[in-house]
């Protein structure tokens, strides 16, 4: 039987709350402190918590390495793609007003910032997870005696 019963039960309660908190930080970055960088790290930490309690193999089943690899580059693509889209719409690189030129409340800016922050979230979360996976898989699961 798994000796860390208490840790497991409490972690199970915490993981969904941490993951949703990451999304809260992400989408409320316009109104208060927060944004893609912080949200990415918090989301990664929820998966890292899962990996610490349930083991690396289970974490890799929940968040496959291929997703991590794709997400890492997808984020940069999303950020750069936003810039290229504004380019194609006739503006400068990352000139978000082009998304809604007639809006009086700068809706174009809002959409641009939204998609850019989403890209940052993707890259940061997946890069953190990639580094964690890379270091963590190098060592086989440690038993308690090794400490």
């Amino acid at each position: 039987m798994n000796p860390h019963v208490i840790l497991r039960v409490v972690a199970k309660m915490l993981i969904p709350l941490i993951a949703l908190f990451a999304f809260y930080v992400q989408f409320h970055g316009d109104f208060g402190p927060g944004g893609g960088f912080q949200a990415g790290v918090i989301f990664a930490s929820s998966i890292i918590l899962y990996a610490l309690i349930f083991g690396m193999a289970a974490a890799k089943k929940a968040m496959p390495p291929s997703w991590v690899r794709i997400g890492m580059s997808l984020g940069v693509l999303l950020y750069g793609g936003t810039g290229v889209a504004t380019w194609l719409l006739g503006g400068n690189f990352l000139d978000y007003t082009r998304f809604a030129p007639e809006s009086t409340h700068a809706a174009g800016q809002h959409w641009g910032i939204f998609s850019v922050e989403l890209g940052v979230l993707c890259t940061v979360a997946c890069a953190m997870l990639a580094i964690f996976y890379a270091f963590g898989s190098r060592v086989q699961d440690l038993s308690d005696e090794d400490w």
């Binding site: 316009d30 944004g35 409340h105 800016q109 910032i113």
Partner: peptide, 13 residues
């Protein structure tokens, strides 16, 4: 930009 958080506006825009 009409955002309450200036930091995000500076950072992303």
């Amino acid at each position: 930009i009409f955002l309450p958080n200036v930091v995000t506006a500076v950072l992303a825009s």
